[in-house]
Design a protein around this nucleic acid. Structure first.
Length: 926
RNA sequence: GCGCGGUUAGCUCAGUGGUAGAGCAUUUGCUUCACACGCAAGGGGUCGCAGGUUCAAACCCUGCACCGCGCACCA
């Protein structure tokens, strides 16, 4: 770094160093290494996805953890990859197909369509990977995995077969969440409950008495005929409340609570279902049944039961052996059984038409606006349709082990409140519907031939077998990620070295989808879960990671979720182009406190950029002073400022290290920011100018040595957060040269993480509390002096002369520092100074500071000054009163610890002294 | 309905019993020889509300309000 530019220019630096790191193989993990292991598996982003702010937050954190671990001397594996993301990817390719060729996937056929998806994947799959590289992610790209890689696919199938053989996977006809747009079953987790504004319709039905006329209740509808003449319609009408009148044709009973005195006597009788209108009454008689499920407080206390289209109703149906009438097609339209006017209509259109028909019949009583929770397909954002279909299900394995590891604190969640959410979910889970009616994904390894069924890794021998058409839920492959990416089922060196992984960084929105299931898979396939049976890996504790860090959700500055439709999501690549990757990382980290959502504001990135520029220029300042790099520090030559900054560095090292250990990234960046900007730059660099502007060569060399010591540590402390600029400075400042090649000599990546100064070093340099206090007092004096200057309306550029009447002895160098910091021509030390009229004074810890003005001020300025000083006096009096009151309370003085009491007394003395001084100043103004 | 978070300066957030803090924004003054992506000095808060514990509460306890999230088969 011969000449540093005036401002930091990230563009010229970032690509260069990333290429260098790759070339040097810095990110490649070596399983044979003797170093202790540190590992993270990336939450694989959607292969067709684009980098968004959530990725930035998530991956910046993983990179910080990885880089810190490298500097701690660990062998680091950050394993990257992408997810095939079944529905999302398939939909994307289907859309493109529609747009460009006006074809559906069925037009192409399964095989041809899948070819197109792979083409898409080859074309777009690298985008997000390259974006992660832009961000600076130090992933081991030699181990990049994709959930549809042949090896990975093999793992997924193997797992399916194993669980099938154990009886944990089974096929059954059950009620599932059906997405009419994607036309596939979904798991419970993919359904999002959303409050929906609709209507609660009340309609009446007539009770019929036809005992004996109805055939067995569990027979199919077509057989359930009443002879027209046998129906005896009664005068009793029941009112039913429903939000879904379009499902009336599918009703096969009406349920009341058997304890409900209004209706109990009607149980066993029938009602005439009003729809389909054209069917003869005899074919529409359905029984009134008694079921405890019915809440008689709600609605009318009469519940229509539609077993084929409602989960709860399905259960009631099962209890009462009711027949099922399906009236809705897979695509959400009504079928022929729904009746003439409804058949073929979309379910929502059909709702309106059903209401019209009921109104025409004169049975509609009222419709009142009503808000209820409706399950939505998370992916397609339409209401899901509970639907009876044949699907594959998994009974979750290793549930007790998975609960225990978190409950017992062996696996830690950060923040830990998620542990409760996790536990609650595991306590209440239902079997997992794992089959999807999609083409893109891992095909279910089951073949059929007539009544025969074969589950295995290969197609069975013989002809006539057809494979199950469905694929597996994407999460059924991602739950294997922590070990399937490392060579499982073989006991590879990588697995032995890096499993279980150390940290997982992810969003709380996938705690059930992914985190919980990975834990179960870990116990089931890597450990000795009770259900697991004999294993190649009987790890004593097979949990896939030791810590889970849950990030917040990134929102815009108004608190709204980032979304494509709102257009409120900035493009991270654009931000990187404008501010630099380091700026984006630092800004994001600084504004992302543990466990809370992050309100993103571009100002944060700006702050990051400004910070990088500050770091850059501080180094530039050092470089402009010339001299030997990293000379020896001579303790005898240390100034008070030197001692102060070394102590502040020590504090910063401790704070940043502790914050990182606790995953408090905003605290760590906050500490770095404060240390570097408010302590090092604002005070130390400015104070050092007293040395560099002087002519003490020995002191200059020593100051340079201190600066190099501080900067070489600071740059390392910063590296995990801002990797590019720190690498540039590490080399440019020459800090790499003295280090062994594998410990910082080649790259800062492996430079040792700074250690706090131990007691021995502190003693060696004479770093004491007193040095800290003296410096604080000195800088306090400077602030007060600048304040005087400001009161006198003397611009910062103007040279002034001050007088200090000291309360303690000060080294000549400290006086020189004060002079430089005040930008004063002279600071005279005079024990017997008698201020002239109109001299501004400030009472400081080090003595009275005077700014003689020689009558330079106008009467207006004097008046303004008087008002200000009088106000200050008021404030001081109020503080004194507050402390005096406390000290006057015998309860206080008797009960309080001695230290607190002493502190209060001292404070009172200080305030009183200050009051005297301010009073004197005020009098001097008059 | 149950559970979990949150409520502190205009904004975003730190602050777990003893003098209310930071960044941004704002005011004023500075083209001071590292940095205007900067420097310096200010102004600004009855810590959501009501009780309680304590010598002392932003902090601990109880209740309430509002915001957000998760879970839940009220049609």
């Amino acid at each position: 770094m011969s000449e540093l530019s005036k401002a930091y220019e990230p563009q010229s630096v970032e690509d260069k160093w990333y290429a260098f790191w790759l070339e040097q193989g810095c990110f490649t993990a070596n399983p044979a290494s003797a170093k202790p292991a540190y590992s993270i598996v990336i939450p694989p982003p959607n292969v067709t996805g684009m980098l968004h702010m959530g990725h930035v937050l998530n991956n910046a954190i993983q990179d910080i953890l990885s880089r810190k671990a490298r500097m701690d001397g660990k062998e680091v594996l950050w394993l990257p990859g992408t997810d095939h993301a079944g529905i999302a990817t398939q939909v994307m390719v289907e859309k493109q197909l529609k747009k460009e060729e006006k074809k559906s996937r069925h037009d192409l056929g399964r095989e041809e369509f899948l070819k197109r998806v792979w083409v898409w994947k080859e074309k777009h799959g690298d985008i997000i990977i390259n974006q992660l590289k832009k961000l600076g992610c130090s992933c081991d790209w030699t181990r990049e995995r994709f959930t549809m890689d042949p090896d990975y696919s093999r793992c997924v199938q193997k797992v399916f077969v194993e669980l099938y053989k154990k009886g944990l996977i089974y096929r059954g006809k059950r009620m599932v969440n059906w997405c009419p747009v994607s036309q596939t079953a979904l798991s419970d987790e993919e359904v999002e409950m959303k409050p929906q504004k609709g209507f609660l319709y009340h309609f009446k039905v007539q009770v019929a008495d036809c005992s004996g006329a109805v055939s067995a209740p569990n027979s199919a509808v077509t057989d359930r005929r009443c002879i027209e003449g046998d129906i005896k319609l009664t005068d009793t009408w029941l009112t039913i409340a429903t939000t879904r009148p379009e499902t009336i044709p599918g009703d096969t009973a009406v349920a009341v609570n058997p304890k409900d005195p209004r209706y109990a006597h009607l149980i066993g009788k029938h009602i005439v279902r009003p729809l389909p209108a054209e069917l003869p009454q005899g074919q529409k008689l359905i029984p009134i049944i008694g079921d405890e499920h019915v809440d008689f407080e709600f609605g009318t206390g009469v519940l229509k039961v539609t077993p084929a289209h409602d989960k709860a109703d399905f259960d009631i149906g099962a209890r009462h052996k009711l027949p099922l009438i399906e009236v809705i097609n897979a695509d959400g339209t009504m079928n022929a059984l729904a009746g003439g006017p409804l058949a073929g209509l979309d379910r929502f259109k059909a709702r309106k038409v059903a209401v019209e028909i009921l109104t025409e019949q004169g049975v509609m009583i009222e419709s009142k606006p009503y808000e209820n929770n409706v399950g939505f397909s998370q992916r397609a954002d339409v209401p899901i349709e509970p639907r009876l279909s044949e699907q594959w299900f998994l009974k979750y394995p290793a549930v007790p082990e998975s609960k225990a590891c978190v409950a017992e604190g062996r696996m830690k969640f950060h923040p830990d409140r998620w542990a409760k959410v996790y536990d609650h979910w595991l306590t209440n889970i239902q079997d997992w519907c794992i089959s999807r009616q999609l083409w893109w994904g891992h095909r279910i390894p089951v073949w059929y031939r007539g009544e025969e069924i074969h589950c295995g890794l290969e197609a069975p021998a013989g002809s006539g077998w057809t494979q199950d058409a469905d694929v597996l839920d994407t999460w059924f492959s991602s739950w294997l990620w922590p070990f399937a990416t490392m060579g499982w089922p073989e006991p590879t060196e990588t697995l032995k070295k890096f499993y279980p992984t150390t940290d997982l960084v992810t969003g709380p929105d996938i705690i059930f989808f992914w985190v919980a299931r990975m834990i179960m898979a870990g116990y089931e396939f890597m450990g000795e879960a009770e259900s697991a049976g004999p294993k190649k890996f009987a790890l004593p504790d097979a949990m896939p990671f030791q810590n889970v860090y849950f990030t917040g959700i990134i929102r815009d500055k108004q608190g709204r979720k980032m979304s494509k439709t709102l257009g409120n999501s900035p493009d991270p690549l654009d931000l990187i182009a404008r501010y630099g990757a380091d700026a984006l990382r630092f800004g994001t980290m600084r504004s992302a406190p543990l466990g809370q959502d992050v309100l993103f504001d571009e100002k944060d990135v700006e702050l990051g950029r400004n910070f990088c520029n500050k770091l850059w220029n501080a180094c530039r300042f050092r470089q402009m002073q010339g001299g030997e790099v990293q000379g020896e520090i001579d303790p005898a030559l240390l100034s008070n400022d030197d001692q102060w900054i070394l102590l502040k560095l020590d504090t910063a090292i401790r704070e940043v290290t502790l914050a990182l250990n606790e995953y408090k990234f905003s605290e760590a960046t906050g500490a770095l920011y404060r240390f570097f900007w408010s302590e090092y730059c604002d005070w130390y660099v400015e104070a050092s100018k007293a040395v560099f502007f002087g002519d003490d060569a020995a002191r200059k060399a020593n100051t340079l040595a201190v600066i190099d010591f501080v900067l070489s540590h600071a740059v390392r402390l910063f590296h995990p957060f801002v990797p590019f600029i720190t690498e540039e400075l590490w080399h440019g400042m020459g800090y790499a040269t003295d280090m062994p090649a594998n410990q910082g000599g080649t790259t800062i990546l492996f430079a040792p993480w700074p250690m706090p100064l131990d007691e021995e070093i502190k003693a060696h340099y004479g770093l004491t509390d007193d040095s800290l206090k003296l410096a604080d007092a000195k800088y306090g004096l400077v602030t007060q002096g600048r304040n005087l200057r400001r009161e006198a309306n003397l611009s910062t550029g103007k040279k002034i002369s001050c007088v200090l009447k000291p309360t303690r002895e000060l080294a000549p160098h400290d006086i020189a520092v004060i002079r430089v910091l005040l930008n004063a021509e002279a600071v005279e030390v005079a024990a017997d100074y008698q201020p002239a009229k109109g001299t501004l004074t400030a009472r400081t810890e080090l003595g009275e500071l005077y700014l003689p003005l020689e009558g330079l001020r106008s009467p207006e300025e004097l008046d303004a000054e008087k008002i200000r000083v009088a106000r200050e006096l008021e404030k001081i009096e109020a503080e004194i009163a507050k402390v005096e009151q406390k000290l006057a309370n015998p309860n206080f003085t008797q009960k309080v610890p001695a230290a607190v009491l002493q502190e209060h007394s001292q404070r009172l003395a200080e305030w009183r002294a200050k009051r005297d001084s301010v009073k004197a100043a005020l009098e001097a103004l008059n």
